[in-house]
Amino acid sequence: QTVQFNGLEYHFPNPEEAEKFAKKVAKELGGEVRVKDGRWQID
């Protein structure tokens, strides 16, 4: 599972970890999490 933001990609072994990370980062950055092409993106 991949999380993308600021032009970087973070890879996680399972979707739960990816989701948790994506939501944490979005909260800290005040961004929005969305899934695109099977990847988590933070904008």
Results as ranks from 00 to 15, higher is better:
Gln1Glu: 07
Gln1Cys: 15
Gln1Gly: 10
Thr2Pro: 01
Thr2Tyr: 11
Thr2Asn: 03
Thr2Ala: 06
Thr2Glu: 03
Thr2Arg: 07
Val3Asn: 00
Val3Thr: 01
Val3His: 01
Val3Trp: 02
Val3Ile: 04
Val3Leu: 04
Gln4Tyr: 15
Gln4Ala: 13
Gln4Leu: 15
Gln4Ile: 15
Phe5Glu: 01
Phe5Arg: 01
Phe5Gln: 01
Phe5Trp: 12
Phe5Leu: 09
Phe5Ile: 11
Phe5Tyr: 10
Phe5Lys: 01
Asn6Ala: 10
Asn6Lys: 09
Asn6Thr: 02
Asn6Leu: 12
Gly7His: 06
Gly7Thr: 03
Gly7Trp: 04
Gly7Pro: 00
Gly7Ile: 02
Leu8Asp: 06
Leu8Asn: 10
Leu8Gly: 06
Leu8His: 12
Leu8Pro: 00
Leu8Arg: 14
Glu9Trp: 11
Glu9Cys: 15
Glu9Ser: 11
Glu9Met: 13
Glu9Lys: 08
Glu9Val: 14
Glu9Leu: 14
Tyr10Phe: 13
Tyr10Asn: 00
Tyr10Lys: 03
Tyr10Thr: 01
Tyr10Gln: 02
His11Pro: 03
His11Glu: 06
His11Ser: 08
His11Arg: 10
Phe12Val: 00
Phe12Ala: 01
Phe12Gly: 00
Phe12Ser: 00
Phe12Arg: 01
Phe12Pro: 00
Phe12Thr: 00
Phe12Tyr: 01
Phe12Leu: 03
Phe12Glu: 00
Pro13His: 09
Pro13Glu: 11
Pro13Tyr: 07
Asn14Phe: 05
Asn14Asp: 08
Asn14Val: 03
Asn14Thr: 14
Asn14Lys: 04
Asn14Met: 03
Pro15Ser: 11
Pro15Arg: 11
Pro15Ile: 09
Pro15Phe: 11
Pro15Tyr: 13
Pro15Gln: 09
Pro15His: 09
Glu16Met: 10
Glu16Gly: 07
Glu16Pro: 02
Glu16Leu: 09
Glu16Asn: 07
Glu16Thr: 10
Glu16Lys: 08
Glu17Lys: 05
Glu17Phe: 04
Glu17His: 04
Glu17Asn: 03
Glu17Met: 10
Ala18Asp: 00
Ala18Lys: 01
Ala18Arg: 01
Ala18Gln: 01
Ala18Thr: 01
Glu19Gln: 07
Glu19Pro: 00
Glu19His: 07
Glu19Cys: 15
Glu19Lys: 07
Glu19Ala: 08
Glu19Ile: 07
Lys20Ile: 10
Lys20Ser: 10
Lys20Leu: 12
Lys20Trp: 11
Lys20Thr: 09
Lys20Asp: 07
Lys20Gln: 11
Lys20His: 08
Lys20Met: 11
Phe21Thr: 00
Phe21Ser: 00
Phe21Tyr: 07
Phe21Leu: 01
Phe21Met: 01
Phe21Asp: 00
Phe21Asn: 00
Phe21Pro: 00
Phe21Ala: 01
Ala22Glu: 00
Ala22Thr: 02
Ala22Val: 06
Ala22Phe: 04
Ala22Ile: 05
Lys23Asn: 10
Lys23Glu: 06
Lys23Val: 08
Lys23Ala: 08
Lys23Cys: 12
Lys23Gln: 10
Lys23Met: 12
Lys23Ile: 11
Lys24Met: 12
Lys24Asp: 07
Lys24Arg: 12
Lys24Ile: 07
Lys24Tyr: 11
Val25Arg: 06
Val25Pro: 00
Val25His: 04
Val25Gln: 05
Val25Ala: 06
Val25Ser: 03
Val25Met: 13
Val25Leu: 14
Val25Asn: 03
Ala26Gln: 06
Ala26Pro: 00
Ala26Val: 06
Ala26Ile: 07
Ala26Arg: 03
Ala26Phe: 05
Ala26Ser: 05
Ala26Leu: 06
Lys27Arg: 11
Lys27Asn: 09
Lys27Ile: 09
Lys27His: 10
Lys27Cys: 15
Glu28Asp: 09
Glu28Val: 10
Leu29Asp: 04
Leu29Gly: 05
Leu29Asn: 08
Leu29Met: 09
Leu29Ile: 13
Leu29Gln: 07
Leu29Lys: 05
Leu29Phe: 13
Leu29Ala: 06
Gly30Cys: 07
Gly30Ala: 06
Gly30Ile: 03
Gly30Leu: 05
Gly30Glu: 05
Gly30Asn: 09
Gly31Ser: 07
Gly31Ala: 13
Gly31His: 08
Gly31Trp: 12
Gly31Val: 15
Gly31Leu: 15
Gly31Tyr: 13
Gly31Met: 14
Glu32Asp: 08
Glu32Val: 14
Glu32Gly: 06
Glu32Thr: 15
Glu32Gln: 12
Glu32Tyr: 14
Val33Arg: 01
Val33Asn: 02
Val33Cys: 15
Val33Tyr: 09
Val33Ser: 04
Val33Met: 07
Val33Gly: 02
Val33Glu: 03
Arg34Pro: 02
Arg34Asn: 08
Arg34Cys: 15
Arg34Ser: 13
Arg34Glu: 06
Arg34His: 12
Arg34Ile: 13
Val35Thr: 06
Val35Glu: 07
Val35Leu: 15
Val35Lys: 07
Val35Ala: 07
Lys36Asp: 06
Lys36Gln: 11
Lys36Arg: 10
Lys36Cys: 13
Lys36Ser: 09
Asp37Phe: 05
Asp37Glu: 07
Asp37Leu: 05
Asp37Cys: 15
Asp37Met: 05
Asp37Ala: 05
Asp37Ile: 02
Asp37Pro: 02
Asp37Ser: 05
Gly38Ile: 02
Gly38Trp: 03
Gly38Phe: 03
Gly38Ser: 05
Gly38Ala: 04
Arg39Val: 15
Arg39Thr: 10
Arg39Gln: 09
Arg39Tyr: 13
Arg39Pro: 03
Trp40Arg: 01
Trp40Cys: 05
Trp40Val: 03
Trp40Met: 03
Trp40Phe: 07
Trp40Pro: 02
Trp40Asn: 02
Gln41Arg: 08
Gln41Cys: 14
Gln41Pro: 02
Gln41Asp: 07
Gln41Asn: 07
Ile42His: 03
Ile42Cys: 08
Ile42Met: 03
Ile42Phe: 05
Ile42Tyr: 03
Ile42Ala: 03
Ile42Gln: 02
Ile42Glu: 02
Ile42Leu: 04
Asp43His: 14
Asp43Asn: 11
Asp43Phe: 15
Asp43Gln: 11
Asp43Leu: 15
Asp43Ala: 12
Asp43Lys: 10
Asp43Ser: 13
Asp43Pro: 04
